[in-house]
Amino acid sequence: MKDFYGVHLDTPFMLGTAQYPSPAILAEAFTRSKASVATVSLRREASDNKAGQDFWQLIKQLNVRVLPNTAGCHTVKEAVTTAHMAREIFGTKWIKLEVIGEEDTLQPDVFGLVEAAKILSEDGFQVFPYTTEDLVVADKLVNAGCRVLMPWGAPIGSGMGLNNVFGLRALRSHFPDIPLVVDAGLGLPSQATQAMELGIDAILLNTAVSKAGDPAMMAEAFALAIRAGQLAVGADPMEPRDMASPSTPIFGKAFLD
């Protein structure tokens, strides 16, 4: 598995921390997922509300790396300022950079994304850009300093799976050495397997686990699915063909006419 800014991850699974029924279920989901990374965020909090402080204590006990995001930011300035605040609080150079451009699909504003990625990379951040599968945008992100790309599978929280398999395959082919993370849009473990079989290096998801009836069980299901796809790629799959090829040997077959 490729490194992520020089960091080796034990598993290619990055799991979000939002929308769980309870902190205990969040913790159980992480345990069963064996995820290596937890995504976190920043929000306003009144001084007499310690939910955020309690949440941070919980995350520190999970023994995973944290990947802060800039979720909800719609401008370069918002995203850059939020990234600086996140770096101070979470003590990491990693930032999942989101600059949202459209409300219905939460599609990234790729122009703002490239601009923010350049600013943050030059300031020492290690940027994980939430982007589309667009090759030209990806190229500009790499030129801006990104050494990881995070194309969406489908709109955030939609559970639709991989909307553009061709685009992801092209991205993989065009950037063989850049770690690719499918971020967002997955709903079922089989979709994670499919992504891994395309040669994607890691999976980032949240809603598919946190909104499942049994989040911990779904977390384990995704872990197994991701592992299955990872093993399949390592096993060098056969080439598909149009016509049948008998798997049972013909040699020695009886002549019964």
Binding site: A18, A71, I89
Partner: peptide, 27 residues
């Protein structure tokens, strides 16, 4: 952004807008 070690040197003036953010769940 105002870093923690710069807060003491950052004056507050009439009409200023301050943001105070804490860790929170995120995807």
């Amino acid at each position: 952004f105002v870093a923690q070690n710069n807060r003491v040197n950052t004056p507050i003036q009439q009409g200023d807008k301050v943001e105070i953010l804490a860790p929170m769940q995120g995807g």
